[in-house]
């Protein structure tokens, strides 16, 4: 019986994923309407259900890919993987208004720089507070606070230990998860309701999964603007973290 489900998961992976996610979406919108009276957007609830299922999957299997580690739901990994995610993000650009995008060009670039340096400092300080003193570990932890891709890329480049790299990924993942959940709640307070703000938000926050998930739950029409700047974040982080930022951290730690 279990064998049959496992086989179905392999043969019909993506189809099972479509059906599974469809059911989550069907459940989410009534939940949004009747439980939160529309205050929490349906897609935000769907994302939270997704995260909860990822936790269940991770606890059940001890794997790293959440629900996708359960053989029957393996297709969810394909549906939510980088290939289709990037494909769908690019598709949203079809709705981008060129005039709006141009207006936020310079401030988007400034946001990108701020959004790389600030989280890096927080990560380094957290590392210091918890007893890390070597430049390699501190830089890797700081890079993890930028995004969960910048962390391991930087750690590998400068030769950090495996546990530190794992911690840097965990920091980045937690950041993405919190951003997904908090963005729709905080959005009205910080005026995250227009294309320009979304582009600044994407540049500052970086993490593509966090930004795209958070904006999707806030207002789907803002997604392309936020993603446009967020997509440069990881690349920029991978550029400066193992080079300039590592150099600066080493300068500070030399006295130790």
């Amino acid at each position: 019986m279990i064998d049959m489900f496992t086989r179905l998961g392999t043969a019909e992976g993506l189809i099972i994923a479509f059906a599974t996610i469809g059911v989550i979406m069907w459940v989410s919108y009534p939940l949004s309407r009747y439980l939160s009276f529309g205050r929490i957007h349906g897609s935000a609830i769907a994302i939270m259900i997704g995260l909860a299922l990822a936790f269940v999957g991770g606890t059940m299997t001890g794997g790293q890919r959440g629900l996708a580690d359960i053989p029957f739901f393996a297709g969810v990994g394909l549906m939510g993987g980088a290939m289709l995610r990037d494909f769908a993000i690019v598709a949203t650009a079809f709705e981008v208004d060129v005039a709006h995008a141009k207006k936020a060009g310079v401030i988007g670039a400034v946001a990108l720089v701020i959004g790389t340096i600030l989280p890096f400092i927080v990560g380094v300080l957290a590392g210091l507070a918890f007893g890390y003193r070597d430049a390699v570990s501190l830089t890797t932890l700081g890079a993890g606070a930028v995004t969960y891709i910048v962390g391991p890329v930087t750690g590998t480049a400068i030769g950090a230990s495996s546990p530190v790299i794992a911690l840097s990924i965990a920091i980045g993942v937690l950041k993405a998860v919190i951003v997904m959940i908090v963005t729709p709640i905080v959005a009205p307070l910080v005026r995250l309701d227009n294309p320009r703000a979304a582009m600044i938000f994407g540049g500052i926050t970086g993490t593509v999964s966090g930004v795209s998930g958070g904006l999707a739950a806030t207002d789907r029409r803002l997604v392309p603007y936020g993603s446009l700047t967020a997509t440069f974040h990881t690349g920029f982080g991978c550029l400066v973290a193992p080079s300039i930022l590592f150099f600066i951290v080493r300068l500070f730690t030399q006295g130790e």
Binding site: G22, G50, M79, A88, A216
Partner: peptide, 21 residues
């Protein structure tokens, strides 16, 4: 594909390493 964006994000959320986080 643009319309499938949110479901894909939900699938992405369901495959995060939440336990590690």
């Amino acid at each position: 594909w643009a319309a499938l964006y949110i479901p894909i994000v939900v699938a992405m959320a369901a495959t995060q390493n939440v336990v590690a986080a």
